[in-house]
Design a binder for these strands. Structure first.
Length: 394
RNA sequence: GGCGCCGUACCCAAGUGGUUAAGGGAGCAGUCUGCAAAACUGCGAUGCAGCGGUUCGACCCCGCUCGGCGCCUCCA
């Protein structure tokens, strides 16, 4: 959806505000007259008289009040422009949000999100425009998130200390799905209103935490049929459901919601030690999937482990990392994932595993350990199972 | 000058006017294991930036201070 596809709606909205006496045209521009909108400043708790007019930018003398903001800006020669009743020009910053949300969501809608830095002036102005034009409430709830910070500093384009999610994917030595999930886990680990300091360590911690869940999922799939703890499982699941819902209902308290998932993980691991039926293990996995779905977690089935054998995903990805070279932005240190060693082909890993198990059978533990060591140097961890076979993971 | 967010253990991070201040990671010590990994068990803040105040009682309420971050008619 693009703002440029909504020019008729935008122009219509500006017209409506002029007709209501809330806006006035000046030499090809159209300004919203803040003094005519008595609730101005309600969202950001600002009073017109408290604002420092001209503190950063010189006041435009043509405006009736220094705080009046542009709904439409006449274009200078050579600039991209659209035709309007006030001459060629382009929409002011805030108007397209109002026009587009009105068209697609209605005059009043439930939730409007955005960074804290947008509270003023952007969201304040959106409200003024929208409510001014319709007389109705604009957004019922405002959800403002804290900043992502790098080394205690706001991440922003102008500071140059930013990088994109795509770059995180590219720098990571892990498959995209995994990287995405750990990023999501990291983001969800703190309350949305608080600041969030981005670092390679935080991401690594998130990765390990997510891995812990998938370790459990693998166990759920492999354990033998025993039914001792089935009943306990249902109790533990029910407790988690209630607590999880409660946390989310409390202003999206995702850190608590995640803590509940962790608690369930521990509970299920314990019950698994006692013995769960195939059916119960399936229920447990489904429960994680279902709860996790609220947060975009645990949706991957064959992720990470050798079940994805043959897809080539990991190898292709490692090539991307190797070719990427060094990062140029100041965020480089944050993106420098520790020891991004080149990966092995899945087939090679499988081969080494067979070789090692052969050695183990012959009690040639020296050789077995060498192979473990070799794979470890490539970031591959081997886990021996009780039935004599092994699994691996990165 | 105005408005706002944040400061909790080694790290990340919830939370409450008064029961043991969630959870995770790391660490240490065990169980298990050929060795590992995973899993499980145990240990870890007498204290929640500092100082005052309110209160029978504050980490949580109020005030001040210190420290970090952000916004305040341009551009998005």
């Amino acid at each position: 959806m693009k703002a440029t596809e909504h020019m008729p709606e935008i122009i219509g909205l500006v017209n409506r505000l002029i007709q209501k006496g809330l806006a006035y045209p000046v030499a090809g521009d159209v300004y919203f007259q803040v003094e005519k909108y008595q609730a101005y400043g309600r969202l950001s708790k600002r009073k017109l008289e408290d604002l420092q007019a001209g503190a950063r930018v010189e006041v435009d003398e043509r405006k009736r009040h220094p705080m009046d903001f542009a709904l439409w800006k006449g274009s200078k020669p050579g600039e991209p422009s659209w035709e309007s009743p006030w001459g060629p020009g382009r929409p002011g910053w805030h108007i397209e949000c109002s026009a587009m949300s009105m068209k697609h969501l209605g005059e009043t809608f439930d939730i409007h999100g955005g960074g804290m830095d947008l509270i003023f002036p952007h969201h304040e102005n959106e409200i003024a425009q929208s409510c001014g034009a319709t007389g109705n409430e604009f957004a019922r709830y405002w959800v403002h998130n804290g900043f992502v910070q790098i080394n205690q500093e706001k991440m922003s384009k102008s500071l140059g200390n930013f990088f994109t999610i795509r770059e995180i994917f590219e720098k990571s030595k892990w498959p995209e799905a995994e990287t995405g999930e750990m990023l999501r886990y990291f983001l969800l680990g703190t309350h949305y209103r608080g600041p969030l300091d981005f670092s390679d360590q935080s991401l690594l911690e998130a990765k390990n935490a997510v891995n812990g869940f998938y370790d459990l999922f693998i166990r759920l799939k492999e354990s033998e049929e025993r039914t001792m703890a089935d009943k306990g499982l249902m109790e533990v699941i029910e407790r988690c459901r209630v607590a999880f819902r409660e946390a989310m209902n409390d202003d999206f308290n995702t850190s608590v919601a995640i803590a509940e998932l962790q608690r369930l993980k521990g509970d299920v691991n314990k019950l698994l030690g006692q013995g769960l039926s195939t059916e119960a293990r399936k229920i447990a996995r489904e429960e994680f999937r279902s709860l996790g779905n609220n947060l975009g977690l645990f949706q991957l089935e064959k992720w990470l482990f050798n079940e994805i054998l043959g897809t080539g995903t990991l190898e292709a990805h490692a090539a991307t990392v190797r070719g990427a070279g060094t990062v140029v932005t100041p965020g480089a240190d944050a993106l420098k994932f520790l020891g991004a060693a080149p990966s092995l082909l899945n087939e090679e890993i499988e081969g080494k595993l067979v070789e090692r198990n052969e050695a183990r059978k012959q009690k040639n533990f020296k050789k077995a350990d060498e192979i473990r060591q070799f794979l470890a140097s490539h970031g591959i961890v081997i886990e021996d199972k009780s039935d004599g076979t092994s699994r691996w993971k990165r």
